[in-house]
């Protein structure tokens, strides 16, 4: 009789988890229904919308298309993991201040795509921001305020870094 459940070992937002899951679960289903990390959204569930974007070893990845086993041995960061001990991530603050979220469903995925961009490219051009977010659908905002917020967060992160020097 083939196994229908098994133990998966995951690193999510710095925590190590060892949990039992149905063998056919995706990373998204495991995050939401096993680890109760419901910040990552289940949208189209077939790789179109980007709502389920998480950061896997530094790269934005769609959790809905990833068999959970493929995430073993890799670092997963979800929207819940963006805030640090000092408080929210500058991206989250700037999304708030710029009115970059309306219904908010796409926001966790967009924050993850944007956070991965700023890790790699601390001072992105508008064009680079557009490209980095081109896999995330937002039906409310028209994107302009989202791009503004990412630019503002990049500025803030850079000035924080300057001060730290």
């Amino acid at each position: 009789m083939p196994k229908t459940t098994d133990i998966v070992r995951l690193h999510v937002n710095g925590d190590a988890h060892e949990v039992g899951v149905p063998t056919h679960y995706t990373l998204l289903e495991t995050l939401r229904y096993v680890l109760a990390l419901t910040g990552t959204k289940q949208g189209c569930d077939k790789g179109d919308c980007g709502a389920c974007t998480v950061i896997l070893d530094g790269n934005p990845t769609l959790a809905c298309l990833m068999p959970v086993w493929e995430a073993e041995g890799r670092q997963v960061v979800t929207v819940e993991g963006l805030a640090g001990p000092e408080g929210s991530h500058p991206l989250q603050d700037e999304f708030d201040l710029n009115g970059a979220a309306q219904c908010g469903f796409c926001t966790p995925g967009i924050l993850c795509s944007a956070a991965a961009l700023l890790e790699r490219t601390p001072d992105p051009s508008r064009r680079q921001i557009q490209e980095a977010l081109s896999g995330n659908l937002c039906r409310c905002t028209g994107y302009a305020k989202i791009y503004d917020a990412v630019e503002a967060a990049a500025d803030r992160l850079q000035s924080e870094e300057e001060e730290a020097k």
């Binding site: 974007t53 934005p60 990845t61 769609l62 990833m66 795509s113 980095a132 896999g135 995330n136």
Partner: peptide
């Protein structure tokens, strides 16, 4: 091909 997240996988 597709979008950035899909190209990462």
């Amino acid at each position: 091909v597709a979008g950035p997240q899909l190209r990462n996988s």
